[in-house]
Amino acid sequence: MTIGEKFTSAFIAENRWQLYLKGLGITIEIAFFAAILGLILGTVLALMKLSTHRNGKPGVMHYIATAYVDIIRGTPSVLQLLIMWFIVMKSSNNGVLVASLSFGLNSAAYVSEIVRAGILAVDKGQMEAGRSLGLTKGMTMRYIVLPQAMKNIIPPMGNEFITLLKETAIVGYVSLNDLTRAANLIQSRTYEAFMPLIGAAVIYFVVIKALTLVLGVVERRLRRSDNR
């Protein structure tokens, strides 16, 4: 086969390009919902980890969150996905939902460490000043500390989103036809590895490059308020 024929058989014949597109759709869908869940749950976990009693000692919440993060980080995400699919949500046949949930719960553990570090990097005088005015801990966190922590959080968070997007490539394990599996299927149909696999790689790369550019813009915009 010539290169042109290989290309045709991998992408054009039988409207195969639609398979990549559908696969990409599923990849992005899972990553998107997982990112949102990870962001929300991760922030909650970070606040739990930082919570203290009145006497300054860590509370029950701290230990719950720490245990969660330890367990999630201590087990492979493929295994977490399989457990979610075959055990926890056995009765569900909505693969995208199960995968989003699994990756979201996984990402939350990493996000929580990013958020926690971002909060700790804010000068503790900011919290003290808020408290000295009579603002509650929650109010000071919301109006003063978290907005400043955002600047520390955005760059590593971008990293986490990118990792998450690529990690969804394992959903083939639970029979979801994401981008990687689409390429895999076409390879097994055409007995040709090069075009579908490299093609999928290029698509991942383009999407992630676009995401990086967007994150760069957000980061610069947040920094601008520093020197006004």
Binding site: Q126, A129, G130, G134
Partner: peptide, 27 residues
Amino acid sequence: VRQRMGMVFQTFNLFNNLTVMENLTLA
């Protein structure tokens, strides 16, 4: 109680994410 006691710090601790006016009116 703290609402009735003002405190001024060595390192100022103005809220960096807020304008001067917002610093003053937030609490």
